[in-house]
Design a protein around this nucleic acid. Sequence first.
DNA 1: CAATAACATGCAAGACCTCGAATTTTCCGA
DNA 2: TCGGAAAATTCGAGGTCTTGCATGTTATTG
Lengths: 151, 151
Amino acid sequence: MAGMRVTKPRIALVETLMKLDGPVSIERIHQQVGIKSCDLVTIYRCLAAFENLGLVRRSYLHNGTCLYEQTLGVDRHYHIVCKSCGKTDKVDYTLPDGVEQRLQDKGYSHLSHVVEFFGVCQECQQVAISARGTSIGIPARGTSVGIVTEA
Amino acid sequence: MAGMRVTKPRIALVETLMKLDGPVSIERIHQQVGIKSCDLVTIYRCLAAFENLGLVRRSYLHNGTCLYEQTLGVDRHYHIVCKSCGKTDKVDYTLPDGVEQRLQDKGYSHLSHVVEFFGVCQECQQVAISARGTSIGIPARGTSVGIVTEA
DNA sequence: CAATAACATGCAAGACCTCGAATTTTCCGA
DNA sequence: TCGGAAAATTCGAGGTCTTGCATGTTATTG
Ligand SMILES: [Mn+2]
Ligand SMILES: [Mn+2]
Ligand SMILES: [Zn+2]
Ligand SMILES: [Zn+2]
């Protein structure tokens, strides 16, 4: 009988997740972990496993691509994500108490939910004004969300 | 100066959307419109255009695939989506008033949000009990969400 | 009605994400 | 320490969704 095994990729992944503070794209995580140290698919599968254990939480860009965030010692919260630059910010919001209870009463089990806010952040609005006509949005899914090499 | 043009595919699409009542997958819509009458990409593009005009709204399966729903004469509402069969249901929920205002005050513009509830519906729980061991979930994205030919 | 500009469509290609099967690694007990 | 079972990783392929570009349609104007 075994839990989850401690492997090279997993160790590197956990270390990376701890260093990062907000929700990050898988591509970015893969980069930080080291492209060579493990396959992208492994990152996907490990994060899925971690998510089942409640160690990470998933959020989304406006285009639907996923972001992952480590959850140890941080309480449940939601984000606003900039449609232009992908920057995330905490939002002062909590799910009303009754909702999930009512759904349970209706017969639904294994409840979960997604709450995500989107907008254009102040910086991106400035940019939009100065660089008029330049398209600045986050590319859509099915397009390079890009690895936007870290500053 | 021109608005949107009235084309064969667009007419068929609107007719189809009016017939349907809940959120439906693109594949299903494409079927109903008639595989031959237009390309799948056209459906994607038209729905995107309709969404900009506020004629349709988008929701999501647990796996992230999109569902579209016509919005004429219906008021804003949210859904619970069965993780197993994809059935959707209205949820008694409204976004708290203050949230978007606070975000605006923080400098965000072009606000939007996604609120989606997921669970396993009663019918699917029954099935899960009788057909123990049979996997019944909705396939993940990157897997045939399938066209589950209509009954 | 004919010519033209603008818009819409179709096709092909690419990005993200997932799975199946083969291989490699980890773990555990002998 | 070694061998074997079980779990993890990798590779390849496929599904959803989006875009660029060439082509086809629509609307407008004379
Ligand atoms: Mn966070
Ligand atoms: Mn609805
Ligand atoms: Zn921004
Ligand atoms: Zn169900």
